[in-house]
Design a protein around this nucleic acid. Sequence first.
DNA 1: TGTACATCAGTGAACGCGCGTTCACTGATGTAC
DNA 2: TGTACATCAGTGAACGCGCGTTCACTGATGTAC
Lengths: 205, 205
Amino acid sequence: MRYSKEHKQETHARIVKKASVRLREKGAHGIGVADLMKEAGLTHGGFYAHFDSREALVIEAFAYAMDRSTERWRKVAEATPPEKRFSTIVENYLTTVHRDDPGHGCAVPALGAEIARESLKTRKAFSVKLEQMVDMMADQVPDVPRKAARKQAIAALTTMMGTLVLSRVAGNGEFSDEILASGREAALGRAAAKPVAKKVRAKAN
Amino acid sequence: MRYSKEHKQETHARIVKKASVRLREKGAHGIGVADLMKEAGLTHGGFYAHFDSREALVIEAFAYAMDRSTERWRKVAEATPPEKRFSTIVENYLTTVHRDDPGHGCAVPALGAEIARESLKTRKAFSVKLEQMVDMMADQVPDVPRKAARKQAIAALTTMMGTLVLSRVAGNGEFSDEILASGREAALGRAAAKPVAKKVRAKAN
DNA sequence: TGTACATCAGTGAACGCGCGTTCACTGATGTAC
DNA sequence: TGTACATCAGTGAACGCGCGTTCACTGATGTAC
């Protein structure tokens, strides 16, 4: 072989990583194979030594982004007292920094709507990663049956991603900030919408 | 002139109307000029007699879809007792019918994320229509200062559109239904998250 | 009222371009002897 | 240990295709006389 044993895997991983940033920035169809390879310091011809098709890269890049997000938030949660975990994630998610940097942010608001129109295979892959993210969020809802925790996790995620989408559309002016603030309040309030949670909600405000 | 005075406007309106359906179904870049013209029973060559560019049609088609949605919900609200208006809209929005027919549904979940990546001109046009929709929703929140009503309207819209996006990604199985139910509950609960609203919430459940 | 002309919405061929994908080739390195 | 060969990640030209846009033309109708 031309390179050491691990070389190909490393290159493959680098392509996926760089692509995951650019695809979140530009959309699932917003950047071509040639440019994605250039991001990784390669030429387009080598692409098919790593991926069966462009779609295969989109799936891998999306999964990579989702894994990183889920993992990162799980770590944030671990470093936070249990009753504050949910709200800490929400507050970290709904920031102007996240709004203004889709490339390094959550893949759901960036790519979700487009993925909904892709092949069953792509949607299935998205669905699996989305469910893992829901599970991770549900783990941060304390003292509630699993089913109710999942409901809260899903509700928060829909509000969080929807808020990011709308605030991005609105740019970065007053309306955009109003959206961000409204979404934050709603997602935090929801975390408190259970019997014992009056205290949590008070803290969040 | 070849045709009666109104003929061109009628054709123009027909192109916009048909395009608004197909663009919501296929995405802002998911269908070409030729196919969009074919939808209206025309050939692609005539396109530039009606629009400066493809982007101009996307803007018009999007605005049309938003106007129709906002108008429709305003009518639904008018036909409903004041305290039930907000929840009625939410319940009409978060249905499997809406999830499974993006072409005739709300343009925000269908096109929002893509629009966020378009030119300033396109985003501005979206932003104006989005704000009109927020205003219409805020009008359905009774007995609350305007600013708070807007917050509730925005929060509900982010949850509603986010829920639709995620449920569409998840297909139409169990997970998708769970998302729909969770989002509905959250958006309805939020309408009740004000001093007097315990009764409304109880009705919603 | 009838005829010649002007208008312009719509047609269809053509354009330049960028895309995803293919393929013959390269050349640095691991392996066999 | 040194040499000949095989491997295969990566290169860059080329492909077929569909796209947005342009343009010369058509022909039904309104208008001028």
